[in-house]
Design a protein around this nucleic acid. Structure first.
Ligand SMILES: [Mn+2]
Ligand SMILES: [Mn+2]
Ligand SMILES: [Mn+2]
Ligand SMILES: [Mn+2]
Lengths: 144, 144
DNA sequence: TAAATAAATTAGCCAAGGCTAATTTTCATG
DNA sequence: CATGAAAATTAGCCTTGGCTAATTTATTTA
């Protein structure tokens, strides 16, 4: 049986998610890019990359490039999906962009598959129901 | 002006929330109670209590009791509210209890006031709209 | 009230995940 | 193709927040 229960830390998830995005958009993910993009020092990124390699999430040749393994990519995709669904959700509710960004970046690491699916369905419903969204936003303005 | 921007760590918030709950339900919060309730060693709790005292969130006399300051209580109340609203939300969506517990315990530390209010309004709306909830749950079952 | 038990604290340890400064390797460019 | 700049790594440090084992203080009970 494949070991499947190993939850990754928030930091590991953030790194993998960002590495995947960089590869997707630029074709590669250098230490310097990851560092800039996460707002972290290059030294810290080098350390983490070493760890991600040791744990089998990336393959890394010193002073050379960086590639996601199957497992690393699968985690990256999963966290990316959680990120998108939560972003979608808070955007639908009309939360301001800067706050959506911060909230999602934290919450995405604490969502079970069930909660994720429930919120996904909720978003589908909300999207196709603009009057409902209006009622919610009105109710928000009243309560403050 | 009062310093108001000092975000507390997740750990600090969890401790304060639990201390407040213990005081509310048992009248006091001993180190041993906090430890048992958070699943953490007594030694670790003693350390954190020292820190919470140093930072002005509790007042603590060695080998004696523990009391929340105004500021500590205010943080505890705020995190308690986030906890309740998120719990409410996931319960409404029909997520299983054990998962609700875990998810909420993590997510509650990453919710801005705006997101919180939006979700609160959403819950009001969902509560008074059982057919909507049904549609969401149906849509959930389909999609899996 | 003395002894046993419970609670709290201290001492010393560890891993995660950051940082800066110094060094090494690679790359670009004249 | 030599050299300066850019990228990456290493070394050494720090804080947070856990842990166990040993000790100290408070409380209960015989
Ligand atoms: Mn994140
Ligand atoms: Mn993310
Ligand atoms: Mn929590
Ligand atoms: Mn909580």
């Amino acid at each position: 049986m494949t070991k499947t229960g190993n939850r990754s830390s928030s930091a590991v998830e953030d790194y993998l998610e960002r590495i995947q995005e960089l590869i997707e958009t630029k074709g590669y993910a250098r230490v310097v890019d990851i560092a800039g993009s996460l707002g972290i020092s290059q030294a810290s990124v080098t350390n983490m990359v070493k760890r991600l390699d040791a744990e089998g999430f990336v393959r890394h040749e010193k002073y050379r490039g960086l590639v996601l393994t199957e497992e690393g990519e699968s985690i990256a995709k999963a966290i990316g999906k959680r990120h998108r669904i939560l972003t979608d959700f808070l955007n639908l509710l009309g939360v301001a962009s800067a706050e959506v960004e911060r909230d999602v970046e934290g919450m995405e690491h604490h969502l079970s598959a069930d909660s994720l699916e429930a919120i996904e369905s909720l978003c589908r419903e909300l999207s196709s129901n603009p009057e409902l969204l209006l009622r919610i936003k009105r109710s928000e303005r009243e309560s403050k």
